[in-house]
Amino acid sequence: MERQTHIISALVEHKPGVLYSVSNMFRRRAFNIESITVGPAEQKDIARMTIVVNADERILEQVVKQLNKLIDVIKVSVLDPAASVVREMVLVKIHTPNSNVRSDVINYVNVFRGRVVDIAPDSLIVEITGDPDKINAFIDLVRNFGIKELARTGVTALSRGLKSVRI
């Protein structure tokens, strides 16, 4: 069966130890996490985890079932990529030794609808938000200038319109 990337949205109890029990389950069952993001959800005491996995259909089914089995996991859904808003943010500190490079970078940032959020004598910090492909494209583009530091948030996502992952 073909492996592909899937985005899982899970509502969990917002309390200590839940992230550990989720990541522990992935390790124990030998499932791979590509990325995981966690933050408070719309309702008090509940957090939303967005987990990206690369798996075939059978493993994906197991991942969802094993997540559901955890007592502190309240609801699990696999998002349909075509009907979801998927976003990730990256901060990149780019080496800009002279004004030519700096203006090139700023041009790229504008095309990618990003922002320059910090300027130092020989570097810039750029913020780009978008789906992972867009972020990959930007990183590839500026790699030749020299990336001094890079931090990605991992993917977060919501279903569009009426379809919701709620309790």
Binding site: G17, N24, R28, I71, D72
Partner: peptide, 14 residues
């Protein structure tokens, strides 16, 4: 012990 027993319990509490 909560960390140790997470993968070997149905659930645990501290």
């Amino acid at each position: 012990i909560v960390g140790i027993t997470t993968p070997i319990t149905k659930h645990n509490f501290q």
